[in-house]
Design a protein around this nucleic acid. Structure first.
Lengths: 341, 341
DNA sequence: TTGATAATTGTAAACGCTTCCGTATTTTTT
DNA sequence: AAAAAATACGGAAGCGTTTACAATTATCAA
């Protein structure tokens, strides 16, 4: 079928054990033997079988990475970060996309287990039908390290790397409050999602700190998609219910919101103000000086990989990393010159 | 170590063969036996070993997909497309990102071979140090099907799915010529890259069709990055060498170019015209009605997967798919009202 | 009931590698 | 020069499945 280690052994006149040693750069093999083996490998175009190797070693050198939305550059950057560290350490990674689909995620976990991965770095699917307790059960059944990214799982005490979403929204909202805004709309996504809660809390905390009551009608539920944010914002515009400022809680929501504002020629910050959470390379392109609380996704990936490696080597180091997003003030937070409300 | 098929056999009182049959949903196993086995699997939390299975069977059910730039949504969409089809057919996919790094790509190919993937869908790295003949040699040594995506390899006659880049740029350029433009700048990337050639040819062909000589100074070399396009455009602006129109040959180059124009408050189409090749979801956001020749990346992924499946099943169907990008006219091609050149 | 046929189940070899352990060879030490 | 230590190498078992083949049991027509 395929060229095997045995063929190499025969051709180069050494034993299979020696061939194996050469392939794995193990010690105790003479120069001469090594040369012969390498030559045979090259001539016969030998490729070791990952399966045979995996079967006889009892550990793989793979970590799995599971993300929910491959077309979002945020996750692309995370993958970049994980890869950087994994490459350094000689670990292979298996990338899977779940498309925010819990069933797909379950399948992915099964596959990853079948491949005996050393650990899994995952941003879990979030949805109304996803329950944290299922994850808790799932992760506890697996007995390999899990590193969460960006989305926490309650009641689980799982390690991971997160951004301080509360602080981010606290900062963003505070900045707006400081700029005299009192009527600030926040698009929240579904309140059951983990993603939402810390962020909304930050928003509320800022109001409390400024001693301003939160107007509940300013918290608008929707989905975590561009379209949802776009539709909601459009409705606000046509119903003439615009606030003096928006605070965006994710790159996609900011995107949808900005899109609607653009479409109706509502300028920032002349007509309305905006502070977003999470950037998008493409925001650079807008002729707005958009104030953003920016996340470093590559760094998140890197830290997640480092955390995983620590866990694999049994180190009992810090096991929850909280990254602080950085607020970059560019002007879009300023109170609208012509306040149309 | 791990729970094995043998443990299940013992616990459920059947043979390993029967357990294997249950796992693989093979025929010829009684209801009763199946129940017992399933129960044991559940109770012992058994996960089959992909390695043992892979060693036993002589084929995997995996196809590899190798892309050069995971943070570019274009490739994210491609992955989405490939996955759609692979899921339908029960094939697993292994995703690898090469970061436009030839060495990394070589490693990825090695890994993929070690995993005995059935075939590889790849957008090859392109660079000045990448030579087509190396690919030809590499691919011929592999003896598994290769499906190329988006980037051709000359002298190779490899199957794949491509966009008709020439036609795309022919259309884009023609539209500008039709709108009275004669001074049209095209940022070409490095002329050695495969990506460039068809596109530049389309540009030239359009000029020829309109019987207008091409001014060579309008073909500006650079890299295939946002930064490169940004810098070049900025230089054109500060040197006061702007044309009446730009034609962008990739989403990233369009992006860089538009960014510079924005920064200097040069409006489209009031000051300058623009027609781009390939879209970006984020272009929606601009308050320009950008005329684009749009590629359907999801479709490309789908077609690549379908092509691969055909090859795997030995079908001798069409083996080069050329997709036609669709020009969507929105207004940015119109001759600048205040022509500042 | 009986034989023929079909369905179910088990036995054991094979897949290609790693690695333990024992032997042979070389190098170092005294 | 002999003993000790280090190095090089090979034999063969074992990893967890699948699957060909053989064996057993169930089904059914006559």
């Amino acid at each position: 079928m395929h060229v095997t280690i045995k063929d190499i052994a025969v051709k180069s006149g050494v034993s299979m054990a020696t061939v194996s040693r050469v392939i794995n750069k193990a010690p105790h093999v003479s120069q001469k033997a090594e040369q012969k083996v390498l030559k045979a490998i090259d001539e016969l175009n030998y490729i070791p079988s990952a399966y045979a190797r995996g079967l006889s070693r009892h550990e793989s050198d793979i970590i799995g990475i599971v993300i929910p939305e491959i077309t979002n550059p945020f996750f692309g950057e995370i993958i970049t970060g994980v890869t950087q560290i994994a490459d350094e350490k000689g670990l292979n990674i298996l990338i899977f996309n779940t498309d925010e689909d819990a069933a797909k995620e379950a399948r992915v976990f099964q596959i990853l287990q079948e491949y005996r991965v050393r650990g899994i770095i995952v941003t879990p699917v979030t949805g109304i039908n996803t329950f944290d307790k299922d994850y808790v059960r799932l992760f506890e059944k697996l007995n390999i390290p899990i590193v969460l990214m960006d989305r926490r799982i309650k009641n689980g005490r799982f390690d991971g790397v997160f951004f301080d979403d509360r602080a981010a929204l606290y900062q963003a909202t505070s900045l707006l409050l400081e700029n005299e805004h009192r009527n600030i709309t926040i698009l929240t996504g579904n309140p059951k999602h983990v993603i939402t809660q810390g962020r909304v809390q930050g928003y509320r905390d800022a109001f409390e700190a400024y001693n301003v009551p939160v107007s509940e009608k300013n918290l608008i539920q929707g989905k975590f998609t561009i379209e949802s944010a776009y539709e909601i914002t459009k409705d606000l515009i046509t119903d003439k219910k615009l606030p003096t400022a928006f605070v965006g809680i994710s790159n996609m929501l900011s995107m949808g919101c900005l899109k609607a504002l653009y479409e109706y020629h509502i300028s920032i910050p002349e007509d309305i103000s905006f502070v977003g959470y999470d950037k998008l390379e493409f925001f650079d392109l807008l002729n707005i000086n958009l104030t953003l609380v920016e996340k470093d996704a590559v760094e998140m990936g890197r830290r997640a990989a480092m955390l995983m490696i620590d866990k694999l080597s049994g180190k009992n180091t810090q096991n929850r990393v909280v990254l602080m997003p950085e607020m970059v003030i560019r002007g879009s937070e300023q109170f609208p010159a012509r306040n149309q409300v």
